[in-house]
Design a binder for these strands. Structure first.
Lengths: 147, 147
DNA sequence: AGAGTAAAAGATATTAGGGTCTTAATATAT
DNA sequence: ATATATTAAGACCCTAATATCTTTTACTCT
């Protein structure tokens, strides 16, 4: 059920971080490896990667020795870019109580509290670039896999 | 699509606040009035109110002059109680990247940032009691209706 | 006691998200 | 050029969330 991001978006974030890490040395990563590396259904992540590659958040090449990778310019994308691509602006913009007309001049009862939360969220996602996660992963200080 | 709470939970929060406000003087509020007052589908909110009343977050009585109301003890429930009743603990507990094994000792790359966000969320919901919203609503300083 | 009113309960539809599978397209190596 | 590896694309299915409708139960007033 409910969480900050959709399941699709969760997988997308994990996958991009994973691919960025693995492709750092120039090699490419296959779908099977991604699925295994982040514990996701293979066909489902394939779908998501297609989408991410169309939006140029990751790169891909077909054929033997093909696979997915993250080039150096894409490494400077932030997590916010991924979330925006998959889940849209809602997490940054929408009213916590689902009111379309909620605004500064016509706030819902939680408007101000949620503004803070959203700002913190935005700051977090905006300031974390894809490239930055590699080191902690390599050092085993953080994880993107269940087991 | 994605937001902090499920649609059901959004309606639930708005409805409880609405009923608390309207029933402050002791009168009871019918389903139709609730639906109109918070812009929700009538039959859907009926379902949700049933549930809330079973969980004693609101009270109800049948028959003529019946309806829903919030008694004084229920007024001291917090928004967190409503969210917990409808959406469960996920918003307070779950990992932002959907990892079941995410923890202090095996954190996902966003673990610490999300901990802050969740804490702020919990604090917000925990410290706001149902009864507290009436005044701002009455003064027209906040709104729970679209139009 | 009976009529009428209102919520409770439950059965049924609709939609969107999540997930799977199959076929097509493309690049590479030989 | 052909075979093969690999992603791209799209059709399809399942489940849970969302929403609606109908029937039952309970209460109140006369």
């Amino acid at each position: 059920m409910q969480m900050f991001f959709s399941k699709t978006c969760e997988y997308a974030i994990r996958a991009v971080i994973f691919i960025a890490q693995k492709s750092e040395g120039g090699r490419k990563v296959g779908i099977k490896e991604v699925a295994a590396g982040i514990d996701s259904p293979e066909h489902f992540i394939a779908k998501i990667l297609q989408d991410l590659s169309k939006r140029e958040l990751i790169q891909s090449s077909k054929g033997p020795n093909g696979g997915f990778y993250v080039d150096s310019s894409a490494r400077s994308n932030t997590l916010a870019d991924i979330v925006r691509a998959i889940d849209g602006e809602k997490i940054f913009k929408g009213c916590g109580l689902g009111l379309k007309s909620c605004s500064e001049t016509k706030p819902c009862p939680l408007h101000n509290d949620f503004k803070e939360i959203r700002n913190k969220m935005q700051l977090t996602l905006q300031s974390a670039t894809i490239g930055e996660f590699n080191e902690n992963l390599n050092l085993g200080l953080s994880y993107i896999k269940e087991r």
